[in-house]
Nucleic acid binder design. Sequence first.
DNA 1: ATGTTC
Length: 469
Amino acid sequence: MPLKIKDLHRIHDWLWEVPKSYRSDMRVPARIFASEILLNDILRDRSIQQLINTTTLPGIIQAALAMPDTHEGYGFPIGGVVATVYPDGLISPGGIGYDINCGVRLLLSELNFPEIKPQLANLAAALNHAIPSGVGKGGKLKLSNQELDAVLTKGVKWLVEKGHALQEDLPKIESLGSLKEADPAMLSNHAKERGRGQLGTLGAGNHFIEVDRVAEIFDADSAAAMGLFQDQIVILMHTGSRGLGHQVASDYIRVMLKAMPSAGIHLPDPELAGMPFSSVEGQNYFRAMSAAANFAWANRQLIAEEAREAWSKVLGNAGGKLSLLYDVAHNIAKIEEYAVDGQKRQAIVQRKGATRAFPKQPVLIPGSMGTASYVLEGTEKSLEVSFGSTCHGAGRRMSRHAAQREINIEELKNSLQSQGIEIQAGSLRGLAEEAPQAYKNIDEVVAVVEKAGIARKAARLKPVAIVKG
DNA sequence: ATGTTC
């Protein structure tokens, strides 16, 4: 039965709850950060039913959480956070998603918009040329087995050793771009083969690299501390672990489904398939996921290098430096410590379409194509109410299929061009799925997370050039 | 998201 707004208890203006009493198999409540407007978008799909299903996971603590950009996903809603107790709580590949360590990275230039405007079309073309994109697309690098294992084991640390990253970049990457639990031996050959040629490639769907202008500064101190200024040109990228992470997810969903019956794990939806973190299957998945996460961080690092080269080629010495502001994941599992009911506890935090947002940390939120993106700052409160997490983007409000049916591609292209946005897109069909009408309103999503106290606005970005697969 | 239906 579809869920209605009356089934939800309003805790405050920006937080709603489905109480544990709603269904007998719930172990904790389900909580949704949303405004009434966004909740009406959210209730159009099955995301809240999916969220309720996740409250039944063995070992879940506090509550299952949905961010204001939440929408339906594989088993778990996208825009969700589930934390289970360490070490025996459930870990589920569906709680992290198929694109392991999908995330966002932001590079800051020293130039303002008027300074690069004459070169904008050239810059967009150079970025499109330098960075391979599209489904199944490979890159320049052909890694040997040993090199691929090194990327999987060490992530960006290996790229520093090889001169593809600066030591000073590392502290600006979540987990220093390297999860130590990673074990390449936990990946199938199939996963490795799919990933081998894909390092330094963008992919397709909602993945992109774009040139943005800082359109608005909200918090002068916080923006200045991050090195942001009005009209500054910055480069935003959104991508993940490509075919490699996808194959890891597929492989381990099968492993979990097979292992569950003898472990006595019963869940309301097979798409929630998982095993205790401490089990062999749980440990193997976590090590494989960590390796895929390292691959994704290395991927974003190499794309940043490619973007830096394209930038220099087009702008020459006058281009100056592109420095890394931050790189943050929004599809990942982490072991973190939280106070739950006054007690410090280790938790297996599973973020799927939810961004880590620790106090003082830059938080990067890409909006839908042609709209705004945001730089936020994490808060102390997120540690109390959202396992140090916030939203990850605008979040779909239309399925890919519905978007293809309803979006007129010519109108969409004209709309972007009339806004002065340079667009380089490999697939027109893919473009329709990313139309802003297919997504929720990013300004509304960000307003909610700020009002709920789980992130603070630092700056708003507007695209001037977009490159997509 | 994804060698877009192993």
